[in-house]
């Protein structure tokens, strides 16, 4: 294997690889914020979020990310998480939503938001299924959960929009944020 071309300092070197595309800040009245018309010129997407649900349950609830507004029952996810005393793994198939993380609710410790970083590599590729990998965490000072979720979106379609929804399709608490970044490669 010959050495790869190394990115030389030049005009493009002045620009970082992580390019902000869009940001959403919840005001407490929105159920499912969406990023649409996602540019197709990056190598990967990275979604950084800080989320709290208005659900009234005391347990953590699921956060879902829908590519291309697709809510058909075709998603599969493998999860790994730890709750402070043990670790567990689970799988969900034929799901309408991309189960990406667990987040706190209005009944959780005050002012606590779950944090998530979601990676979608090769999102604009039209010959491969999409793998959506999320590292997430939520600590409630005495309880909590942290984990990794890997979702298969079984379509070769390029991802052009992302929509976020929490369990029960309830409002996101004010202060919830989603920031979408494009990760550019050499020449992009």
């Amino acid at each position: 294997m010959s050495p790869l071309p190394v990115f030389a300092a030049g005009s493009n070197a002045a620009h970082g690889a992580i390019v902000p595309i869009a940001k959403y800040v919840a005001d407490g009245t929105t159920v499912s914020p969406s990023f649409s018309n996602i540019p197709q010129g990056y190598q990967d997407l990275m979604l950084v979020s800080s989320v709290r649900s208005s659900a009234t349950t005391s347990s953590l609830v699921s956060l879902y990310i829908l590519p291309n507004g697709d809510s058909s029952n075709n998603k599969s996810v493998t999860t790994l998480n730890g709750n402070g005393s043990s670790a567990a793994s689970a799988r969900y198939t034929t799901s309408p939503f991309e189960y990406s993380a667990n987040v706190p609710t209005q009944q959780s410790a005050p002012f606590v938001f779950g944090t998530q970083i979601t990676h979608i590599l090769n999102y604009a590729n039209t010959t491969t299924y999409k793998t959506i990998l999320t590292r997430w965490a939520c600590d409630l000072n005495g309880a909590g959960l942290t984990g990794i979720n890997c979702v298969l979106y079984p379509y070769t379609t390029a991802i052009t929009s992302l929509t976020a929804i929490v369990d029960g399709v309830v409002n996101l608490v004010a202060g919830t944020t989603f920031t979408l970044y494009g990760v550019r490669s050499i020449g992009q």
């Binding site: 599969s76 996810v77 493998t78 999860t79 790994l80 793994s89 799988r91 198939t93 793998t131 990998l133 990794i148 979720n149 890997c150 979702v151 298969l152 079984p154």
Partner: peptide, 10 residues
Amino acid sequence: GVDLNGSGQV
């Protein structure tokens, strides 16, 4: 991570 719709590992 890999998910294969019925199997997978993270």
